[in-house]
Design a protein around this nucleic acid. Structure first.
Lengths: 132, 132, 132, 132
DNA sequence: GTGGTCTAGACCACA
DNA sequence: GTGGTCTAGACCACA
């Protein structure tokens, strides 16, 4: 299957295009829809496909490389990298900012702990159904 | 209580200062921590308090006026406008994006539901102690 | 009849308070609802009545004096002045800016001359009915 | 045709420059003199053209975006948004305040209807000659 | 290249 | 005192 068909770019969205790509591609690798060693499409090809500036694709690839999702093969483009699994505590550490943000918002909105927990559990049970 | 003490500006954050203020002040009004008719601190006073340029405060006030949260009293500053408080469901709706963001991150990081819930409860119990 | 009852101040309106007063008072004199020699209420009295800053009333009185509608009686407040009628050509000259403004707006909005004239005639016939 | 030639900025006018631009540009779009998808001149270009600070243009563009007339294309400037043209009655509604203002002034100055209409027709015939 | 944010400082209208 | 407008100039994110 072509990778391009799995990616969705929304030019009008508030999150920058390159970030949309970083998020989606890393998720595809994290869920093994893209497998180690797979070749990525060239910057130019992806740029043409989305009618987007090649610099934008290049920036996304650069960040994915920095985060360890992709590897540069000199003269041959990018491929999906072998990637160490994060330890549980590393994962929790990466998650903490989102938790803090959520709690700060809840507090400011006057949402109490039980309501908050219930909303999270609701969302969890819904997400458990629809696969991403 | 002084309004200034309820507001927190993070100059280093990626969200612009004026947006932080718009968000926080509108929430304070929506949750009735600021009440209809209350006088807002003057642009210059708030600017001095946060060591920020008056235009930055002015931009926030301007947006809050446009959104109907504040009213201009010519020559006498701004006051909290008559406005319905947020209903519980409106508050939850405003909170939902933070929840979705958190869950998406957890999923991408492979953090399962029990670990996530535990982390949230930990954070909640800590926040219950330190007043904001 | 008390003058205060004939005046209406809208603190929330976009036109400044002092201008509202200038306009209304000059109109009252122009239509002889206020007559030459009538005493005006004191600045303080009017300010108290409208819960408005005395400087605002003072500014209105100042402009009305400058335009010849009021006369200052030292130590005794203001009274309605004897006032020369404007010549027809003076009136038209004073009116011209409003006409130019209207025509510029009509042009920019793509409203053609017949529609414009009809709208004016409509407005004229309506205004002919309701007294101001 | 260049957009710049359709816009007229009066630096000395009492209405702020950015408001003049908001008004004029929204009208050009509303009357379809600017069409959906048209690229707007860049902030810097327009600022240079009117010898005005870029922030002034930026403020105008920001308001036009908020009102739905323009759309931001990140990194690529602004373009005219998809938007319904103004109906004839909407145009008349926008014009009404100028008409009311004119009639109020005429009344206050004691200019009667026939003189007023004649003055308007005179102005119309003059404007019909000089193109704007 | 594009627009966005912020500063420091001037000047103004309104009350 | 209050907020509003504008400038000149710096710095940033995005494409």
């Amino acid at each position: 299957m072509q990778l391009e068909l799995l990616l969705h770019v929304d030019v009008g969205a508030s999150t920058p295009i390159y970030q949309q790509l970083v998020e989606q591609i890393s998720r595809l690798i994290g869920t093994e829809q893209l497998q180690q060693g797979d070749d990525m499409p060239s910057v130019r090809k992806l740029a043409a496909h989305f009618a987007v500036n090649p610099m934008t694709i290049s920036k996304a690839y650069g960040q994915l490389e920095q985060q360890g999702w992709l590897e540069r093969q000199r003269g041959k483009g990018m491929k999906v990298a072998r990637r160490q699994a994060l330890t549980p505590s590393e994962r929790m550490a990466q998650l903490q900012p989102s938790i803090d943000q959520l709690l700060a918002n809840a507090k400011q909105l006057g949402v109490d702990a039980p309501s908050l927990l219930k909303a999270i559990e609701d969302a969890l049970s819904q997400q458990g159904v629809k696969e991403c």
